[in-house]
Amino acid sequence: MKQIIRKVLLATFIIIGLIVLFFFWAKSPNWDKNDYAQIRNFRIDQKAVSDSTLSIISYNIGYLSGMTNNTSVRPTKEFYQKNMTDVLSHFKKYKVDLLALQEIDFGGSRSYKVDQFDVIGNALDFRSGAMSVNWDKKYVPFPYFPPTVHFGKMLSGQAVLSNYPIEEHERVELSRVRSQPYYYSSMYLDRLAERIKIKVGEQEVMFFNVHTEAFDHNTRVKQIEFLKDWFLRISEKMPVVMVGDFNSDPRYDNAGVLKFYEDDRIGAMCKKENLAKASTLTYPTDKAIEQLDFIFFSTAHFEVVEWDVLEEFGQVSDHFPVYTKLRLKKIK
Rank of each mutant, 00 (worst) to 15 (best):
N218D: 15
F207D: 00
R327T: 06
F296H: 03
D190S: 06
K277S: 12
V257I: 13
E194R: 00
W25S: 06
W135G: 09
S50A: 14
A193L: 06
G244Y: 02
G244F: 05
L161R: 02
K77V: 03
G201A: 13
F313G: 00
P250M: 08
T219G: 10
A123E: 07
Y184H: 11
V87H: 12
F117G: 10
E303V: 05
L292I: 02
D286I: 09
N247I: 02
E173N: 14
D125T: 07
E306F: 03
V257E: 15
L21R: 11
P147K: 12
S50Q: 15
K287A: 10
Q81N: 14
L232C: 03
W31T: 01
Y63K: 15
Y139A: 09
N134R: 07
E213W: 01
S179C: 10
R74Y: 09
Y139P: 08
S89L: 09
K272E: 08
D308K: 07
F313N: 10
T12K: 09
K2S: 00
N30M: 04
T148Y: 05
F231K: 10
V210H: 12
E170T: 01
L227I: 06
A276N: 14
Y183E: 09
F24D: 13
E103S: 07
N83P: 09
G62W: 01
Y188S: 14
F42S: 00
F13C: 08
K33I: 01
L124S: 07
N134M: 10
Q203F: 04
Q223Y: 08
N70E: 15
A288F: 03
K33M: 07
R327F: 05
E290W: 03
S89M: 10
F231T: 04
N69C: 03
E202R: 11
E78W: 05
V140K: 14
S179G: 13
A268L: 10
Y59E: 02
D286M: 04
V304T: 11
L21C: 14
K27P: 00
N41T: 02
N209M: 06
S52N: 14
G17I: 00
E103Y: 08
E194I: 07
S89I: 01
I196H: 09
L18A: 15
K137G: 04
I15A: 15
L155N: 02
K259N: 12
D35H: 15
L227C: 03
Y323K: 11
P141S: 02
V49T: 07
Y94H: 15
M154V: 07
A11E: 04
P75L: 06
L281A: 13
R195D: 10
G62T: 11
L98V: 03
I166V: 06
D32R: 12
L192Y: 01
G121L: 02
G121R: 09
L18S: 15
I44T: 10
N274Y: 08
Y252V: 05
R233E: 12
R191L: 06
L258R: 15
F117S: 13
G244P: 00
A268H: 11
T76W: 08
E312G: 05
H169C: 05
E103D: 14
I39A: 12
G256S: 02
S235Q: 08
W135K: 09
M84F: 07
Y164L: 07
R74F: 09
D253Q: 06
E204S: 13
M84C: 06
I234K: 14
L281K: 15
A11D: 04
T212N: 14
